[in-house]
Design a protein around this nucleic acid. Structure first.
Lengths: 66, 66
DNA sequence: CCGCACTGTCAAGTGATCTTTACATCGCCG
DNA sequence: CGGCGATGTAAAGATCACTTGACAGTGCGG
């Protein structure tokens, strides 16, 4: 699952630690999401969507597996 | 996190097992989601949104925690 | 050159999200 | 009554989503 987290974060001039603070998660978690090591939980995806003012579907792109 | 899964499923005349088959998960997982025992992973939330033709935000309602 | 902020990653641990198997309850129909 | 489809739940186990703590690499300003 691809995402636009790095783009959205850097556009706001935030560090990974800045974003982590606002999400109440660790910096390592933000890094893991940006580098695609795993997907966020649904509650964390909601937090991200609220924070960036976008829909979950506009931040995360599901690869359609046939 | 509340959701409208039961409403959406029964409106289509599907059983929990029917839905589970379409999602490639177990019937117990569908039951656990409907009864609110845990939230789906983000990929599973995407599958549900696609299947029901709705946005994730319209199926799952985040409780705003102050 | 040195320090510092930022990023990437690892290891080990915890709790959440799944799995399979199993069983109990309910309502309905023959 | 007896069986059956649908639902709810439990236990045990795999894997994923997170944590803390640590360390290494990069780039920039003093």
């Amino acid at each position: 699952m691809n995402n636009r987290l790095r783009e959205l974060r850097t556009a706001r001039g935030w560090t990974q630690a800045d974003l982590a603070d606002q999400l109440d998660v660790s910096r390592q978690t933000v890094n893991a999401l940006e580098t695609g090591r795993y997907d966020p939980s649904l509650p964390l995806a909601f937090k991200l969507a609220r924070l960036f003012g976008q829909r979950i579907e506009d931040i995360f792109q599901d690869d359609p597996q046939p």
